[in-house]
Write a protein that binds this DNA or RNA. Structure first.
Ligand SMILES: [Mn+2]
Ligand SMILES: [Mn+2]
Ligand SMILES: [Mn+2]
Ligand SMILES: [Mn+2]
Lengths: 217, 217
DNA sequence: ATTTATTTTTAGACAAAGCTAAAAATTTGT
DNA sequence: ACAAATTTTTAGCTTTGTCTAAAAATAAAT
């Protein structure tokens, strides 16, 4: 598998997470910041290799072989992110692009030794689960802050958008994994959410609330 | 710089170490396990980018720009090797190929943080010096075991051949960095060397002796 | 049910990096 | 000094992955 093939298969894997149907050419092109025609070319190659199921104009689905391969790349990506934050003191907004390269290093032994060195972490710095060595992913139960109800309390356990910009905005709001949040009110006018955090009341926009995951308590 | 360009510039850098003249196309092809015609193509590209000086049929020399770039790749290679051995418990014969990939990860910040995490090591697991962040390399003074004289003593500080096969052979002989060796005798017939190691006498072939560096004491 | 708009695929080009085979230059041997 | 051997370069092809522009298929709108 080439680096490029790996990035495609991973993109399809991530896009398939909560989608039942085939993934569209355009969706993949968007995710990978490339052109639809390039995607079509690559999909054909992946189909020839038996990694995806593909019928023209019908979108693409991962074959079992492709799914486990993709999960392993995601495993590497997230383990490296954990390493960068926990051992090298990077912040959670700095690690994605570096992990995007590190995830392609080809050595089973390396990743198993890294896993042990890190003491077998179960989630990455953004709260995303780290697949095990066979590609299985633990189902984390979490809800979006935007869908939590007035009066509920929860711990921040993840983010949906993990772009640097969003993560730095959360830093500014003092929102981080592990923080406790209480939903004080929801404003019907603009769907903003009034929360209590560190004994302060702050208002969170609908867009922001739609990108924060809570585990309700 | 592409991965391939980086590997070429590094190869030229390593071949230039104790050579004054231009590096030949064939020597590079040999080192990189590729064909001379491919080397010629790449050299032209590197020359266009100002990384090397090149005149047809005259071999190639690193330009200053190329030298510092190459030194940075070597720095990354050796720091990662150190990490693999010291933190992930790899053995010295297992790390080269993995470092060959890791050396291409593009992040200044990553390598500086890794350096700090490792506590600024000065040599890699094979005794080779780790260039500093500006590409300067400390001159280590060491001699080949093959050139040490009868009666001299020394500490093993490096290897010339760092192939897995040779390193595993050294493991078998119980020769490792830091071990003390006394030259008891040199056999004129086949240039083998009789040494004392861990209070045992063993005979080392000329070829083996020519790939072990000592710091005499 | 057509027409219009959007999505997807194809066709044709291009850059990177490699190869083989042949030509050109340099080095070596006598 | 000149022929033979070796090294280096060139020419022409191949594979990967990308792109633009045009054609084909599907989806949406009237
Ligand atoms: Mn990637
Ligand atoms: Mn992540
Ligand atoms: Mn390399
Ligand atoms: Mn080394």
């Amino acid at each position: 598998m080439t680096l490029s093939e790996e990035d495609y298969i991973k993109a399809i894997f991530l896009l398939s997470k909560d989608v039942e149907k085939g993934i569209s050419t355009n969706a993949i092109a968007m995710q990978m910041d490339t052109k639809a025609s390039s995607v079509t070319d690559m999909i054909k190659k992946l189909a020839d290799k038996g990694l995806v199921h593909y019928k023209k104009y019908q979108g693409v689905r991962l074959a079992e072989k492709g799914r486990t391969y993709a999960a392993k790349i995601v495993r590497k990506h997230r383990l490296w992110e954990f390493f960068l934050v926990e051992k090298l003191n990077f912040t959670w907004d700095e690690v994605h692009d570096i992990a995007e390269e590190l995830e392609h290093i080809k050595s089973e032994q390396l990743i198993e030794k890294l896993d042990a060195f890190l003491d077998f972490p179960r989630v990455d710095p953004h709260g995303d689960p780290i697949p095990d060595k066979d590609g299985n992913i633990a189902k984390v139960d979490k809800v979006l802050l935007s869908s939590a109800k007035k009066g509920e309390r929860g711990i921040v356990v993840g983010v949906k958008d993990s772009s640097s910009e969003f993560l730095r905005y959360l830093d500014k709001l003092k929102i981080a994994l592990g923080k406790e949040i209480t939903i004080l009110n929801k404003e019907p006018f603009d769907n903003s959410v009034l929360i209590e955090l560190d004994s302060h009341k702050i208002s969170i926009s609908a867009l922001t609330a739609n990108n924060i995951y809570l585990k309700t308590i």
